Amino acid sequence: MKKKLGTFAILITLATCFLVACSSQSQSESSRTKITIATDSDTAPFTFKKDGQFKGYDIDVLKAIFKDSDKYEISFITTAFDSILTGVDADRYQIAANDFNYNQERAEKYLFSDPISKSNYAVTSKSGTSYDSLDQLSGKKTEALAGSNYAQILENWNKANPDKEPIQINYAAAGTALTTRVQHIENGSIDFILYDAISSQYIVKDQGFDLTVTQLKTDIGSEKDGLEYLLFAKTKEGKELKRFVDKRIKELKEDGTLSDLSTTYFGGDFASNLN
């Protein structure tokens, strides 16, 4: 009888320890700050979905940044491109991740992480036709998402060159896939798409388009051209989150994680040369 009681007492003790451990883990998880990361899931290879799962360079970089964090718990959400930053404004999302480049208008409203990749601007056009400067795009037709960095580059060129035939910019509806816009080059409704070299080369190869991708030879804007960032709200919480993210980006660059992910998704190292 005593032996049975002893065994019972041991089982009770083990069960209690298990429940305490589970409770501690649950409390630890519930105490972590929830971070929602917004993306349009349509900017491969930076961010896309495969079999319903979030994939891409930006996604895996963020997973690596927050891996084993006892402070933050992340989740991803898909939304239209033009709703990403308005969602950050409203604090629905705490991080914007969608191959964001730098521009002054965004810098006035949002905080930028340290860069996570560097890619040149490129022009996608019909096979056998190449454009390696903005001047060559004068009078040509294109499509761009309103508010995107690429649209602003073309708009700025038009403003700076009033004596030349303007670049004709058709503003695509929010959520119009890059693939759809690239198809419009093949069917002749537009002449080119200005985008980053990584995405342009990826989509042409992945979708089997018979098109030419040419990197621009001329610099555009500033030394920040071609750099990719994560964006945060200009708030106390946003600044704290940025500090955490920047620290981890530095660590991931130093240990080779960024270069490895770049090679996996981009087919080359677009991260080790980051300043």
Rank of each mutant, 00 (worst) to 15 (best):
P115F: 11
F76A: 04
D132V: 02
D135I: 01
F100I: 00
Q104T: 10
D82T: 12
S119E: 01
Y121N: 06
D135A: 15
Y110I: 07
N103S: 14
D89I: 10
D91V: 07
I116S: 05
A90H: 13
Y121S: 02
R92V: 05
I84S: 02
K71V: 11
I65H: 03
Y102W: 14
T47H: 07
Y121T: 00
S75H: 04
R92Y: 09
I74M: 04
D68R: 06
E108L: 13
D135R: 11
I77P: 01
D51F: 02
A90L: 15
I84N: 01
Y102N: 02
G87T: 08
F112C: 11
D114Q: 15
K67Y: 01
D68V: 11
V123T: 00
I59F: 03
E108S: 14
Y102R: 02
Y93K: 04
V88R: 02
I74G: 01
S125L: 10
Y57Q: 07
T79V: 15
A64C: 01
S83W: 13
S133H: 03
E73M: 04
K49W: 03
Y110A: 02
S113E: 11
V123Q: 07
A80W: 12
D91A: 15
T124W: 03
S125I: 12
A64M: 10
F48D: 00
A107Y: 09
D68W: 10
S130D: 12
D58H: 08
Q94P: 07
